[in-house]
Amino acid sequence: MRLSRVLRAGAVVTALALSVAACGGGKKADASDSLVDKASSAKKLTVGIKFDQPGLGLKKPDGSFEGFDVDVARYIAKELGVDAANVTFKEAQSKERENLIKNGDVDFIVATYSINDDRKKSVDFAGPYFIAGQDLLVKKGNTSITGKESLNGKNLCSVTGSTPAQNIKDKFSKEANLQQYGKYTDCISALLNGTVDAVSTDDVILAGYAAQYPGKLDLVGQPFTTEKYGVGLKKGDTKAQKAVNDAILKMENSGDWKKSLETNVGPSGYKIPDAPAITEK
Rank of each mutant, 00 (worst) to 15 (best):
M1W: 07
R2L: 13
L3R: 15
S4M: 14
R5V: 13
L7F: 14
L7M: 15
A9D: 14
G10R: 00
V13M: 10
A15S: 11
L16C: 10
S19V: 12
V20D: 09
C23R: 14
A31Q: 09
D33E: 14
D33S: 11
S34C: 05
L35F: 09
S41H: 14
A42P: 10
V47L: 03
V47A: 03
I49F: 08
I49L: 13
I49H: 08
Q53Y: 00
Q53D: 03
G55V: 00
G55R: 00
G55N: 01
L56D: 01
G57E: 02
L58V: 04
K59W: 02
K60G: 03
G67Q: 02
D71T: 06
K78H: 09
K78M: 11
K78P: 08
E79S: 09
G81T: 06
N86Q: 12
F89E: 08
S94P: 03
R97P: 11
R97F: 05
L100C: 11
G104Y: 11
D105T: 15
D107A: 07
F108G: 01
I109C: 03
I109D: 02
V110R: 01
S114Y: 12
I115L: 07
D117N: 15
K121D: 01
F125K: 14
P128N: 04
G133V: 03
G133A: 02
D135C: 04
L137W: 00
V138K: 00
K139E: 13
G141P: 11
G141Y: 11
N142F: 11
T143N: 08
E149F: 14
E149H: 10
S150N: 05
N155G: 15
V159P: 04
V159L: 05
T160M: 02
P164V: 08
P164C: 10
I168E: 03
I168W: 09
K169R: 13
D170N: 12
D170R: 04
K171V: 09
Q179H: 13
Q180I: 01
Y181W: 14
A190F: 09
N193E: 10
G194Y: 06
A198E: 08
L206Y: 02
L206S: 07
A207T: 10
G208F: 00
Q212F: 02
K216A: 10
L217K: 00
L217E: 07
V220L: 03
G221I: 07
P223E: 02
P223S: 06
T226H: 11
E227F: 11
K228G: 08
G230M: 00
G230V: 01
G232P: 10
L233C: 10
L233H: 10
D237S: 00
T238D: 14
K239D: 02
A240V: 05
V244G: 06
V244Y: 07
A247M: 08
A247W: 03
I248E: 02
I248M: 05
K250C: 13
M251S: 06
W257T: 03
K258V: 01
K259A: 04
S260A: 04
E262T: 06
V265A: 00
P273G: 06
D274T: 12
